[in-house]
Amino acid sequence: MADHYETLGVSREASIDEIKKAYRQLARELHPDVNPSEDASERFKSVTHAYDVLSDPNERQRYDMGGDQGGAGGFGDIFETFFGGGFGGGQRGPRARAERGDDAMIRVDVELSEVIFGVQREIAVNTAVLCGTCSGSCCQPGTSPATCDVCGGVGQVQRQVRSLFGNVVTMHPCGSCSGYGTVIPHPCVECGGKGRVRERRTMNIDIPSGIDTGTRLQMRGGGEVGPAGGPNGDLFIEFRVMHHDVFSRDGNDLLATAQVSMTDAILGAENTVAALDGDVQLEVPAGVQSGDVITIRGRGIQALRSTTRGDLKVAVQVVTPTKLAGREKDLVRQLAALRKEEPPTLGEFQQGLFGKIRDRFFRQG
């Protein structure tokens, strides 16, 4: 059976990043979708199994100590299937008390204005942390684990089973020490012998620009510390972008509506308006119609893992005055007389303003 390290082409001292890099390169070459040959399929299975073992700290430690010889399914495995233990009295040694901690996930609400460039935020997490009294040893200070009297520290006990093949010796986890090989005579009072306690802690996180509701950020090692001071799991942060009363988004574009007076719509105008990241100049062209969209380039949201920004798109809503003074009415009548407008005629039914705005937003996108 080939060594897992040889299968991946890495040294026994390889880091987890080197193991991942080697696996990804081999997987791209041997994946059945890319290389349909039977030899490649078998190698892909071997490479995947090797990666599954070496990428898990506990499995890798067990493998380095002589466990997990590839799962080839030899004669001893048949007896293990029937009798629940190793064949011929083989010993795998005690199990490690320290184990990897669980992953944790929290949800964080983010304002739309914070999404434009990203922001640093302090968050609170209720999770398991290393016990400050015993530092993960699980023992009361001044004491230490004791060798199990039942298994003698090996973490397993032998059982003799009579079968069709004769007497078979099998190995089972020691019930006295749960397979650890040691017991804790004086458990830490603070953590109850677990090596960890629950605590509400705060941490600073960098919220990247361009995230949307449902985006998840993975912080390796930010999750719960494992039993007996084992390595931390990961922390997953899921974001929810809050509703804004004025601005909405379409991908990395920001969308808004501007009410324009009748005179500005006729003559055109330039005004300063407040955007999410400061003031912008809104240039209203002469003759603008309700439903027209004015695009301000580069004033949208900065894309995730990029310096490119979307646009700010402003839909125009021309506001017709409902009350006019006598002089104003006279001037409008004079304008109407000068323009000699044609009377309205019936035509195909047109959708409302918001439907027109929606269609124009997406047409421009």
Rank of each mutant, 00 (worst) to 15 (best):
V241S: 12
E328N: 03
G73I: 13
I357K: 13
D277H: 11
S41Q: 07
Q69C: 05
L324K: 09
M65K: 15
F362E: 10
C138Y: 03
E114P: 08
F247Q: 08
V53F: 15
S55E: 12
D206T: 02
T215F: 15
L282K: 09
G70P: 06
V288P: 13
C134P: 03
G132R: 09
A275K: 08
V273E: 13
G90W: 08
K45A: 07
F354E: 07
R121I: 02
R363S: 12
R333G: 03
T307W: 02
F79L: 11
D39E: 13
D359W: 14
R196P: 01
V316K: 05
G132Q: 09
R333V: 15
A128L: 10
G233C: 08
R299A: 13
Q350H: 12
F349H: 12
E38I: 00
E342T: 00
P185D: 11
E114L: 06
R363M: 06
G347K: 10
S41F: 08
S46D: 10
L217Y: 07
S41K: 11
F239S: 04
D277E: 11
K21N: 09
P231N: 05
E341T: 03
D250A: 03
Q350W: 08
R327P: 00
H49M: 07
F79H: 12
G226A: 00
A228N: 05
R107P: 08
H49C: 04
I19C: 04
V150M: 00
G132S: 07
Q351R: 09
S163W: 10
L304A: 06
T263P: 01
E238R: 13
G222R: 01
G365R: 14
F165Y: 14
S306R: 12
G278T: 04
D109T: 02
V288E: 02
Q69T: 03
T213P: 15
A275S: 15
D206I: 02
C177I: 05
G132F: 01
D245V: 07
T133H: 07
H49S: 03
E122K: 07
T307C: 01
G76Y: 05
A146S: 11
K20Q: 13
S11C: 04
G291F: 13
R107E: 12
G195Y: 04
I296T: 00
L235W: 04
A269V: 14
K329G: 06
Y63W: 13
G70L: 10
R162K: 13
E199K: 10
T81A: 13
R43C: 02
L335Q: 04
S261K: 02
R333L: 14
F117A: 10
S113K: 15
D359M: 10
V150E: 03
T272I: 07
G86W: 07
A96Q: 09
Q158L: 10
P36R: 05
L346K: 10
